[in-house]
Design a protein around this nucleic acid. Structure first.
Lengths: 147, 147
DNA sequence: AAAAACAAGTTTAGTATATAAACTAAAAAC
DNA sequence: GTTTTTAGTTTATATACTAAACTTGTTTTT
């Protein structure tokens, strides 16, 4: 029980440390400084190759209104393009511009590099089990959120 | 390489899922609804048994100004007490009231219960290795942030 | 001991990010 | 063809934060 108490504290601290790393605006490629929320939206769009506003909002876990505002800002910065769908003129398809894609890849590389650094702290068996734990927990949380 | 690509995505998703869980205000004990930042400050104070404003700000990873504002709100809600130190009249010692402690313990129980749920998804070996990984990574990030 | 430097905390103005609710317009259902 | 649903936007408001100026109290320097 004492052991588990200490573990939960380490877990909490780990999450806190990760959060702190993503707090301040950073430069991504030649897109200039982007806030965490901005690059987060860029990332969601880039990972999908383009999506509609509703799907984007859902993926980011925010309301459609919030997504609209952020998308307006990114469009003004010329990192994304919004175009109404020919099939359904209510729908708005969001895609990255060349500069947006540049930011997307810069961010992706940064994350990959960071994740590799983390992996270097562990041995092969630890990596294998750690990653399988993450996968299981992700599945569990997904099921749980459906309830 | 394909395996590792998928792992980083699961890791990212896991962190996102955890973040989503702590987004909306919740009721803690008889302290009423508290926002994530409010309960976070309560947690930091309760875990220490009381601390000074600077230490509190540092622990939360925010500026002293931000800590002052949040503390003012929690004091108004009668969850904490601020008193100037007799040793150094510039320093302000922050402690929890009875209601604040109640919120602290309610939050702690919630976290413990959640962490137990996560553990139930894993077998004994996985738990042992997962927790040792978390510990190692926490240590690594701490060293890294000192640079 | 007086002046300068430093430290603890607060205040203020501004910014980022979000929600909720009212709204417009298009599509689907009946 | 009217009603309902869906997609997205707008607006007003709230939260949480920072940076910088500030006040007050404590050290340090000379």
């Amino acid at each position: 029980m004492n052991k588990s108490k200490s573990s939960i504290e380490h877990f909490g601290k780990f999450l806190f440390q990760l959060q702190q790393l993503e707090k301040k605006p950073l430069v991504f490629g030649n897109a200039g400084k982007l806030t965490p929320s901005e690059i987060h939206m860029i990332d969601a769009i880039g990972a999908d190759g383009g999506l509609f506003m509703s799907a984007l909002a859902k993926r980011l876990g925010v309301t459609k209104g919030a997504a609209t505002q952020m998308a307006a800002r990114l469009e003004q910065k010329q990192l994304i393009v919004r175009q109404t769908s020919p099939a359904d003129s209510r729908s708005v398809l969001v895609t990255l511009t060349a500069v947006g894609r540049d930011a997307f890849f810069a961010h992706k590389r940064l994350h990959e590099q960071f994740y590799m650094e983390l992996r270097e702290q562990l041995d092969d068996q630890e990596i294998a089990i750690f990653e399988s734990c993450i996968f299981k927990l992700t599945q569990y949380l997904r099921e749980k959120s459906k309830e």
